[in-house]
Design a protein around this nucleic acid. Structure first.
Lengths: 129, 129
DNA sequence: TTCAAAATGATAATCATTATCATTATTGCG
DNA sequence: CGCAATAATGATAATGATTATCATTTTGAA
């Protein structure tokens, strides 16, 4: 079990307290704003440690990595390219098909990431000309 | 239709001539080695232009973007985390399930990326203790 | 307490990518 | 044809996320 230092606990609490997908910088700023100043390097290290321990999860986007709570069922993401909103979805059949495709090729799956890009419901309506 | 300058043509030829997944730096080096010196900025711009024109495709990995030929059927990727090998796969059912999930949530899909990480057949055998 | 290992934080370094800007090439158009 | 407007190139600086470094602080066990 990892050591939950004050800093790591603060990061974990912040992530657990919301449904957001945080990046390192947002966490550092938010913690500082809440009277918990924390070095940015500590945030990066803390996030890596917490993720390795399975206490948080992440998705790797093009530019940066974002972290979210781990106490949910496994899911993938749909990201709105207009407003940046990240929605979650789960589909057991997609998951099992992935594994079967991999198995056919002798590939041992240790992880996967499925992201759909597009417009969320709100943005696609606003987009109406 | 875009203008196929000598540099863009050279990039396109290099990509079309193989099944590799190239990054910008590899292309610049490889072109230079083939007597086609090209500025790295031009490579980045050329890749973006060629991709926008649909002449090449890309996958965004954690660290860098890699480009590949576009003259193949749509497919996704399995990446071996040991040797870095990138295998391709296609599965129509997975694709259609993605779209149906998105539709349920009112999400308009403009693109997606599915990557499985793990061990390719060769590396998982070598891994036997 | 006391010392070693681990963690932190400020900051430098890294690395892919993008921006800048001066130079070069290309494309009409008269 | 010849030149001006436009686009492309390339060297290099800038950016931004992340990691490395290293001195300092904290923690934990003996």
């Amino acid at each position: 079990m990892i050591k939950l230092t004050a800093q790591r606990q603060a990061i974990l609490d912040m992530i657990n307290a919301s449904d957001r997908h945080w990046d390192a910088d947002e966490l550092a700023r938010s913690l500082s704003d809440n009277g918990q100043p924390i070095g940015i390097a500590t945030v990066y290290r803390g996030l890596a440690t917490l993720e390795a321990a399975g206490l948080i999860e992440s998705i790797q986007l093009a530019d940066k990595k974002r972290y979210e709570r781990a106490d949910k069922a496994h899911h993938d993401h749909m990201i709105c390219t207009v407003c940046g909103d990240i929605e979650e979805f789960a589909h057991a059949k997609i998951e099992s098909l992935q594994l079967s495709v991999a198995a056919e090729k002798g590939f041992t799956v240790t992880g996967h990431q499925l992201v759909m890009f597009g417009l969320c419901e709100r943005c696609s309506q606003g987009e109406q000309k």
